[in-house]
């Protein structure tokens, strides 16, 4: 075969492949959405190229091999694949172009050349990344710092498998800076915490702007996933006349002079409406 000739497909399609590749992990594709005969868009749909729809022409790979001769390679989709990621992904995007909407292009996954197969298991009957309770473990393969954070004592229930990364982030895009599912950080948080959306009569300025000013959504050592412990977190911004910003130290502990500014809910002992108040007398966020 000359270098400029078209690569050849195998003589018998999948029947050729299954002569060797007959393990359950491979055959599981017949329990996936990729092997629906009646859907002509799928690799095993009528008129399609079966295994070679994704793995490319396999004529040479499936051909006879002389003793001592190395079998010709075929397109693989794993981390050790020699095929450039962009070319690997083209096999998928040939059909799944619509799944890559606005947000994918120029996003971190696109620019860092993440392969579709890095996250998706195209042969599996159930693709783990599409199941909420399994998804985070797939994401954590790369996002290992977030895996550590998810183990913190105060975190969203990702460790328990009751919330997935996709609840907030859109792996295929998302239009905000950190690929969030909604247009802005707060809009994403309001997806589950709509009670904080307001607008309130008395707004707390950072709340209206960015929940992340006070909360670390990936997990924290502090209740409420706060980025610092109260009252110091509040004292990072507030030093009011008539309500002095007094240093809170060990003298305010129960065995000394218990301080209502330090213990219990700290500043929130009184300013409970820290996300905003809709009470006409609530300008100090106490009603």
């Amino acid at each position: 075969q000359s270098d400029d000739s078209e690569p050849e497909y195998s003589r018998k399609g999948a029947d050729s492949c299954f002569a060797c590749h007959d393990d359950q992990a491979t055959l599981a594709v017949f329990r996936s959405k990729h092997a629906i005969r009646q859907d002509s868009r799928t690799p095993f749909g009528h008129g399609q190229l079966q295994c070679e729809a994704c793995h490319g022409p396999g004529g040479e790979h499936a051909g006879r091999v002389r003793r001592g001769q190395e079998r010709a390679p075929i397109t693989a989709f794993s981390s050790g694949s020699t095929l450039p990621v962009m070319e690997q992904n083209q096999f998928c995007t040939a059909c799944h172009q619509d799944d890559l909407g606005f947000g994918w292009h120029g996003g971190a996954h696109d620019m860092e050349e993440v392969a579709c197969s890095d996250c998706h298991s195209s042969h599996a009957a159930t693709d783990p990344v599409l199941v909420s309770s399994m998804q985070a473990q797939v994401c954590f393969d790369c996002h290992q710092q977030q895996r550590t954070q998810a183990m913190k004592p105060f975190a969203h229930p990702v460790r328990e498998g009751k919330m997935d990364c996709g609840s907030c982030h859109s792996a295929h895009g998302g239009s905000s800076d950190t690929r969030l599912t909604q247009q802005a950080t707060n809009d994403t948080c309001f997806g589950c915490h709509a009670e904080q959306r307001g607008p309130y009569l008395w707004e707390h300025a950072p709340v209206s702007e960015n929940c992340g000013d006070c909360h670390d959504p990936h997990g924290s050592n502090h209740p409420g996933m706060l980025s610092l412990r109260a009252p110091m977190l509040c004292q990072s911004c507030h030093s009011q006349s008539g309500h002095p910003s007094i240093a809170q130290d060990a003298s305010g502990l129960p065995d000394a002079t218990p301080s209502p500014l330090l213990l219990g809910q700290s500043c929130l002992n009184c300013h409970s409406q820290v996300h905003g108040s809709n009470h006409p007398s609530g300008s100090k966020l106490m009603r």
Binding site: G101, F102, W104, F190, R197, G198, N278
Partner: peptide, 19 residues
Amino acid sequence: LTAAEEPDNNFQQLSLSGA
């Protein structure tokens, strides 16, 4: 004594996106 609870609210959005 009485304090206000989080008020009922709504948000609606129209979007057009493409690639």
